[in-house]
């Protein structure tokens, strides 16, 4: 790999190319030590990360910030289900059993994340409460909010996976929570007579559900990694099938926006 030639070519289309890297000296120093080790194969990775740093977005949130963000959402969910249980409108039997099971998991997630943040010498958030004025009096609407919280949680964890790549153990834990949120979402959705997954047709709904499925990448998206699922796979698939097969991310800013979970925090 001839990195000098790549940089030379980049400079033809971007005069600031060298200024974008940490510094001219650092580029060649980093490359030199890599090359000295004879690890030619590492060069593409090195170059990719170099370009990510030079042209990518500003640095993402720290691991503690990501974990506290997750903890905030878990505390919000936990308090919501506590309020739902206390309100006494959940029918006995299967519905009450499901809500109790979900609450048990949210409480476990709160404990796990709190301990993890403390172990990492961070300060775990606490006392996040569901806004009383947003809490619905009737059971049907409570389920609507539960669906909004769970489907938001799925999108929120998914959106942070990339920010945990530097820590394999934490990334795996986050994924193990993420799929539990998806199981919760599936069950709450079926309690409401919805499909367990999110078809394209369910992506423009009234609040509080509507904004849960919108965003920079909407849940009715049918293009994944530049592949149009409905038309590019040899076999045609419907928009509903394509959208349901892939859940979409929400960014931290989108989740914390007042139109979504951010607006439900007391």
């Amino acid at each position: 790999m001839n990195i000098l030639r790549i940089i030379e070519q980049l400079s033809e289309v971007d005069a600031d190319v060298l200024g974008r890297f940490d510094s001219r000296r650092a580029v060649f120093k980093g490359l030199g030590s890599t090359a000295k080790k004879g690890a030619l194969a590492a060069a593409p990775v090195f170059v990719a990360s170099l370009f990510s740093k030079a042209y990518g977005q500003a640095a993402g949130p720290s691991i503690i910030e990501v974990l506290n963000y997750a903890l905030t959402l878990e505390l919000l969910e936990e308090d919501f289900y506590k309020k739902m249980t206390a309100a006494g409108k959940v029918p006995a039997g299967a519905p009450a059993g499901a809500i109790a099971l979900i609450l048990k998991h949210e409480t476990a997630h709160v404990a796990l994340l709190t301990k993890t943040i403390s172990d990492l010498k961070g300060t775990p958030v606490k006392d996040v409460k569901f806004k009383q004025s947003a809490f619905p009096a009737d059971y049907e609407t409570q389920l609507v909010v539960a669906q909004a919280l769970e489907d938001t949680g799925v999108r929120a964890y998914k959106g942070q996976a990339g920010n945990l790549m530097s820590n394999s153990a934490l990334l795996q834990v986050a994924l193990q929570i993420h799929s539990v949120e998806a199981r919760h979402a599936a069950h709450i959705r079926t309690m409401r007579g919805q499909t367990a997954w999110i078809p394209a047709s369910a992506s423009s709904l009234p609040a509080p559900l509507g904004p849960v499925y919108t965003g920079n990448i909407r849940e009715d998206n049918v293009v994944q990694s530049k592949v149009n699922i409905t038309t590019d796979l040899g076999t045609p698939y419907t928009a509903n099938e394509a959208a349901a097969s892939f859940d979409e991310i929400l960014t931290m800013a989108e989740v914390l926006d007042a139109s979504r979970a951010g607006g439900l925090v007391a």
């Binding site: 998914k158 539990v180 998806a182 599936a186 349901a244 892939f246 859940d247």
Partner: peptide
């Protein structure tokens, strides 16, 4: 991540 939640 987009696929695993659908599997879940």
């Amino acid at each position: 991540g987009q696929i695993v939640s659908v599997e879940a």
